[in-house]
């Protein structure tokens, strides 16, 4: 199994950068996410995660998204659902969400995902100005 790195469209801000590391289990999605046909972009991420957790390794998932549209939020929910199922079967899962300290709307989104999935998501405020 290999690392998953996606940064095919650095000039198109609506595609996030994806970096999933097989060796140390650190997975990150950063930037913004509001591309057309969102689910097609997220399909390989979901497959990678399912393959990875089949090996029973620990995972640290870092979200560093400053904006995602409603379609992307549905796919993010799919990611969290995979992590939740892994965790309830004994998998070691740690989830962080980095957000701008001046962005209370993002805190609301994080809380919503926590509520929906029952997962603990550590919200980490950073100064992105």
């Amino acid at each position: 199994m290999e690392n998953l790195y996606i940064n095919d469209n650095p000039n198109l801000v609506y595609f996030p950068v994806v970096s999933f590391n097989y060796v140390n289990g650190v997975c990150e999605i950063s930037g913004e996410s509001y591309m057309e046909e969102t689910y097609k972009f997220y399909q390989p991420l979901l497959k990678w995660l399912n393959d990875y957790i089949a090996e029973k390794k620990s995972i640290d998932f870092n979200f560093k998204l400053s904006y995602f549209n409603t379609s992307s939020s549905r796919s993010i929910l799919e990611i969290l659902e995979i992590l939740r199922k892994y965790k309830v079967t004994g998998g070691k899962v740690n989830i962080n969400w980095y957000y701008n300290i001046e962005d209370p709307d993002m805190v609301g989104e994080i809380n919503g995902f926590e509520f929906e999935t029952g997962l603990e998501i550590k919200a980490i405020a950073v100064d992105l100005k």
């Binding site: 400053s66 904006y67 701008n100 001046e102 962005d103 209370p104 709307d105 992105l128 100005k129």
Partner: peptide
Amino acid sequence: YEARMGIYR
């Protein structure tokens, strides 16, 4: 930043 992001979203 808060206002800009609200408008952007």
